[in-house]
Amino acid sequence: MSVLVLLEQRGELKPCALEAATAASKVAQAAGVELNAVYIGQSLADQSAELAGLGIAKVYAYENDALNYYSNDGYVPIVRDLVQELGATVVIGSASALGKEYCASVAARLGTELAQDAIEVSWDGGLKAKKPVYAGKIVSEVSITASPAMVSLRPNVVKIERDGDAVPEIVKRDMPQVSLRTVLKEAAVAAAGQIELTEAKVVVSGGRGIGGPENWPVVQELADALGAALGASRAVVDAGWIHHSHQVGQTGKVVSPDIYVACGISGAIQHQAGMRTSKLIVAINKDPNAPIFKLCDYGIVGDLFEICPLLAAEVRKALGKE
């Protein structure tokens, strides 16, 4: 018996991989079994320090430039074989856009069950997970008796915790011969320093209340002050004010930042589905009856064109940025 965590990398180990390892470590401790990890991609060498103190005994590293980028054909057979070799009884991955495909494919090859996009995972004589359903209006707690029990963890819901600085043993594995049916033609990745919505610690979003696309700078200034990613409501995406990749909500991205600031967003159910697992929610809206005020921790009823610049300045002051 053991727990295996799938370490997600996209050019580098992603925070969601370390979050999954933190969650997996707690499961392994509660079950009294060892935690191992599998890493597939370019050389892990410079990054192994990132894996210190996470309670991982061994990292099975399949280092090969041909698998820098996720590929079903490349990754899934490796994990299937490793799970069987180790007799892993729990497998935990990340519920990123790639991670969900990765976990679903591994679960299919192993013929086992999987709970995707969990916001909590625990061990209580068996694996349990909590996950939002029905646009986040209901939380479902499931128990998985199939083996291995698989869960993918929503990014940003678990805080990375380290205990000491013990570095896992790196077990280098030869890459098996795989033929990749799917060919990667081009990878467009976020520019360095650009903060991706689902991984951001702070998200500032704009809705109809911003009045028009020419007013994004008002929201962007606040986002910059907070070091935040820029989000948007469905209404403004549908109106063509900003690209769909910024949409937070049921038909957009699901975010769980430490602070979520909604500017001029009424807070329709469809938007709530994408942000209600945020740790702190701040709402700025001129309509005191906007549903967002029922969901927020802190609310300011007022004109965002006055509040946002003042708030940006105050945040810069508080963070010593000016």
């Binding site: 086992t112 069950e113 999987l114 709970a115 349990k128 939002p132 359903v133 986040g136 209006k137 209901i138 939380v139 479902s140 707690e141 499931v142 128990s143 998985i144 008796t145 199939a146 083996s147 029990a149 209600r276 697992t277 929610i281 005191p288 005020f293 029922k294 969901l295 927020c296 921790d297 802190y298 609310g299 300011i300 009823v301």
Partner: peptide, 20 residues
């Protein structure tokens, strides 16, 4: 199936709702 719903609940209801 090897997966079962144990319990359904409402999402967190403990927001501060503090209007400044």
């Amino acid at each position: 199936s090897g997966i079962a719903v144990e319990n359904l609940s409402l999402p967190r209801q403990d927001r501060l709702n503090k209007i400044i």
